[in-house]
């Protein structure tokens, strides 16, 4: 015997395209994620559909060389938009394309591995509804719960955070968690000016949010390290240092001015 496949709210979201205003957009960047992304989409779709507001899902692929795009298109979900890139441009470029294509009043960017469970959505949303322009998931804020994180990644994260705090003036305990929420206005302002396409785009976004006087709330989240992470700490650390200098240089040259775009 086969039981009913899912709740009616999910069924409706999966089968019927949104026609009215969209409350929430979820943006997932992918690069060769054909194995990991479908369970993540399932978890997100089941949870958000149950909350009762119209929402859309945008997967911004970053030039995958596996069959990620084919797998996504084969899902046949009415409110899933797949953005395809001809070439790999970096996670930052994928998230930017997704955020700028989003139509929701609130935009969540979430990693493809469900390392921050979608059940944390409400915590960030309550900050946005309380007046924050940006709400960021944090693995380092008091109350966060982190599982399976390797010692190497812990040391790496701590080191980056010290650099960011003392070398950059961005005083969040965790700038790199792949779970961030924006009002549409804030998201567009930030991502239209974002110039970093690689791993450190999060840092640039938070630097810009501070520069523009936006309210950024840091929310402790549950985070479970997902096996198969493609992050190479040594390579990323070098890129991060370089990008910190690039961000400063861009600012000095006036490339982040609000009237610049």
């Amino acid at each position: 015997m086969t039981a009913p496949t899912s709740s009616s709210t999910y069924r409706s979201w999966a089968d019927t395209p949104n026609t009215g205003p969209i409350a929430w957009s979820v943006v997932i960047p992918t690069y060769n994620e054909s194995e990991r992304v479908v369970p993540t989409i399932g978890a997100i779709a089941a949870h958000l559909s149950s909350l009762g507001s119209p929402w859309e899902l945008i997967v911004a692929d970053d030039g995958s060389t596996d069959d990620t795009v084919e797998v996504l298109n084969a899902l046949g979900l009415a409110n899933l938009q797949v953005l395809v890139a001809e070439q790999n441009g970096g996670k930052g470029s994928a998230v930017r394309r997704g955020v700028l294509a989003a139509q929701g009043d609130v935009i969540l960017f979430a990693d493809a591995d469900q390392s921050t469970p979608i059940e944390q959505f409400a915590s960030l949303l309550s900050c946005i509804e309380g007046g924050a322009d940006v709400a960021i998931g944090s693995r380092a804020a008091a109350g966060a719960h982190v599982s399976n994180k390797s010692m190497a990644r812990k040391v790496f994260s701590k080191g980056l955070n010290l650099l960011v705090r003392f070398g950059f003036g961005v005083h969040h305990a965790d700038t790199q968690c792949g779970f961030k929420m924006f009002t549409t206005t804030a998201g567009r302002q930030l991502f239209q000016r974002q110039l970093i396409d690689q791993f450190s785009f999060d840092l640039e976004i938070l630097y810009l949010a501070k520069k523009f006087g936006m309210r950024v709330d840091e929310v402790p989240v549950e985070w479970i390290d997902a096996p198969g992470s493609t992050v190479d700490p040594a390579k990323v650390a070098v890129e991060f240092l370089k990008d910190m200098a690039v961000i400063r240089w861009n600012d000095l040259r006036g490339r982040y001015r609000r009237d610049n775009r």
């Binding site: 039981a3 496949t5 899912s6 999910y10 369970p39 978890a43 779709a45 089941a46 149950s50």
Partner: peptide
């Protein structure tokens, strides 16, 4: 529900 949807997808 999430497991049901994942199995379906």
């Amino acid at each position: 529900d999430p497991v049901r949807v994942i199995l379906e997808l």
